[in-house]
């Protein structure tokens, strides 16, 4: 059976990780490559690097970072942030990225998903969706959740899938940063209509939240940042607990 995936997310700015980290034995906590290597050794199944300034300041994701990670890390990784056109993705593919994640650019120009899927295969294309609840409905938000659109989240996810997304990375902006758990209700609802993998993001605070996101949200993978970076949850402990709850993990 396919294992549920645990994915640490590293926010990167100017080639350095942004949030503080609390790893022992780490020479340089700001070095995303060393951090990535450490996570892979601890049992992370995949990694996501997000250039958090990229969309807002129109920065291109650093190709050097992707190359360094691909050289040194032996698990798959996704790079997101500032990918606006086919050429951006092409450079990243040839620098060793396994997947790219597109967010705002895809909402503004949905055909980008078709183009990327045709050029690189759907397995390369992760569509990241930031959602927030407004008057009882879920709407897609852009620019790190700052800008509301009129597009309803579930409609957009269906469209992204039909255009050739290989995976959906769904972040609940309402839950993100709260540490109160993932939005399992929305995740479960989205998952029912989806025939591609769903990565849950936003709200992880403790180990039981991960049990919930797989048992109630039925996500295929769970992504988190600070709980891992600050050492609040260690991946071996997390996986042991998931296993104890009958959830298949590597």
């Amino acid at each position: 059976m396919l294992a549920k995936r645990i994915i640490p997310c590293l926010d990167v700015k100017d080639g350095r990780t942004v949030k503080g980290v609390n790893f022992v034995n780490l020479r340089d906590a700001g070095d995303p490559v060393e951090l990535a290597w450490q996570y892979s050794r601890e049992g992370a199944d995949e990694l996501v690097f997000l250039d958090i300034t990229a969309t807002h300041e129109r920065r291109k994701t650093t190709v050097d970072l992707v190359k360094s990670v691909a050289r040194q890390v032996n698990i798959p990784f996704t790079i997101g942030g500032g990918i606006n056109e086919l050429a951006d993705a092409d450079v990243l593919l040839h620098s060793g990225a396994d997947k790219i994640s597109i967010n705002s650019a895809a909402v503004r120009n949905p055909q980008l998903i078709d183009q990327m899927a045709n050029a690189f295969g759907i397995q390369f294309v992760v569509v990241a969706v930031d959602t927030r609840r407004v008057n009882g409905k879920n709407y897609v938000h852009l620019n790190g959740g700052r800008l509301k659109t009129d597009v309803e989240t579930e409609d957009w996810i269906k469209e992204a899938e039909s255009r050739g997304a290989g995976e959906i990375l769904l972040t609940s902006m309402d839950h993100d940063g709260t540490k109160n758990g993932f939005d399992c209700v929305l995740l479960d609802k989205v998952n029912r209509g989806l025939s591609i993998p769903l990565i849950a993001s936003g709200g992880a605070g403790n180990i039981s939240h991960f049990v919930d996101v797989f048992q109630q949200g039925h996500a295929d993978a769970a992504l988190a940042a600070s709980v891992f970076h600050y050492g609040e949850i260690l991946i071996p402990d997390l996986k042991a607990e998931l296993r104890k709850n009958g959830i298949e993990v590597r």
Binding site: D45, Q123, G166, E167, I196, P197, D220
Partner: peptide, 30 residues
């Protein structure tokens, strides 16, 4: 199941295939 088959799954070697030497019988691969 969902397609593509994406992630880590257990692999079961047959007949002691030499590619899988020193790997246990149900090792995960990506």
């Amino acid at each position: 199941e969902k397609v593509p088959h994406t992630g880590w799954n257990k692999v079961y070697p047959e007949n002691n295939n030499p590619l899988f030497e020193n790997l246990k019988k149900d090792t995960y691969f990506y």
